[in-house]
Design a protein around this nucleic acid. Structure first.
Lengths: 211, 211
DNA sequence: GAGAGCTTGTGAACATGTGAACAAGTTTCT
DNA sequence: AGAAACTTGTTCACATGTTCACAAGCTCTC
């Protein structure tokens, strides 16, 4: 068994971490990695590593471990890497500008190919190699660059209408840095990264520990 | 019962969202809010809202709902807001600069009071009102500004040593934007915000849906 | 005051995630 | 070959999180 059935969300969220951890190993030819070694690099429990990898149908060798190169290949394939998913960044404020120029995205196979902003002064400019377009051009930009993913870094007030536009343009994967709730129809995946919430969680524990 | 016992992590993570959702309501005097209304605003299940709020010892009124102002007060208190927790940003690259100037942090009670960078050219400058210090000055900066939280936006290669410095300086709450694993001793809370992983999760679902 | 119509708070069922433990298989050493 | 030392894959028990369902309680109307 252990075929290519359904992979749990918690596992998917860790696969990228495993992959990056594995790339930190000097990968000579048929090098082997144990679940304990990988667990140590990734900062998780070894049993969890084995269970996660078993969902890939990945067959390590008992008494030996996992073959480094093959394991990297399998994780990459499971995550759909190898494909390149072009990204558009909406909202070129403080944060949007940083995200547009963030090399880590390109390196991971998510090149930022375009940015959108409603400010006419910014439209037409090029920021960190990324051209800025007006919102009206969205559908065209998505089609021309085969954009697969949108990143929203607009002010909260504009977020919902921007998301509606993105969905209209056919995008189905959105990463939001806006702290407010935005609604998307079924079939569209929205991942919210909420920096304020993260800080508030830290603040909560500081508060608890100091009282 | 429902006293001030232990509040589950999942609940803590949602309290800030509830608070921001409530602030979107025109809060006239003794205005009442039902769990269904708040659930709609926050995009979650109404039963979850009620259970979350019950952990606060918050007593709504059956048949009526929660009193808006009092509920906001209670959530704020539970989260330890009202206190102000000064933040230091480490690493003034693309992302660090954006975070240092991010108004949302200050507005939520987490003012960025200082930044650290190892580049001598940046040290001594002021970015978006935030002064940049050298790593050697960390302990002094932490003491002078009563820094409670650190945000790490350095290159991956520097992250571990920066974190070690922060811990030595007495900081116990760290938010990391670095994609690699960093180790912290017991008693230090590290929250990792991994943008690459988020994109890879979106990519995973795109890949699954298109195959 | 009795009853209808709400809404809260919580018990219980279900779903998901975690980690210890161990059988089964591989390698190494003698 | 046999024993010892490893490591994987999987099962099981437990912890956490989610959602339904409903009793208990409040308000309003008649």
């Amino acid at each position: 068994m252990s075929g290519h059935g359904h992979i749990p969300d918690a596992t998917v969220a860790r696969l990228g971490l495993y992959l990056r951890s594995l790339e930190a190993i000097d990968g000579t030819g048929g090098c082997k990695v144990s679940s304990y070694h990988l667990a140590d690099l990734a900062g998780v429990n070894a049993a969890k590593v084995r269970k996660d990898l078993s969902y890939l149908g990945s067959h390590g060798t008992r008494g030996v471990g996992y073959e480094l190169d093959y394991l990297k290949f399998e994780i990459s394939r499971a995550l759909g890497l190898g494909s390149v998913w072009p990204v558009v960044v909406c909202g070129i404020g403080n944060l949007g500008r940083a995200l547009a120029g963030h090399d880590g995205f390109r390196d991971a196979g998510f090149p930022v190919v375009a940015a959108m902003d409603s400010d006419p002064v910014k439209v037409g400019s090029v920021i960190d190699g990324v051209p800025v377009y007006a919102p009206i051009e969205l559908a065209e930009v998505v089609a021309n660059h085969r954009v697969a993913i949108a990143v929203i870094a607009t002010p909260a007030s504009a977020a919902q209408s921007v998301v509606d536009n993105l969905v209209s343009a056919g995008l189905r994967s959105i990463m939001s840095f806006v702290g407010t709730v935005v609604n998307v129809p079924d079939g569209v995946e929205l991942r919210a990264v909420d920096l304020t919430t993260e800080l508030q969680i830290l603040g909560f524990h500081l508060h608890r520990d100091s009282s």
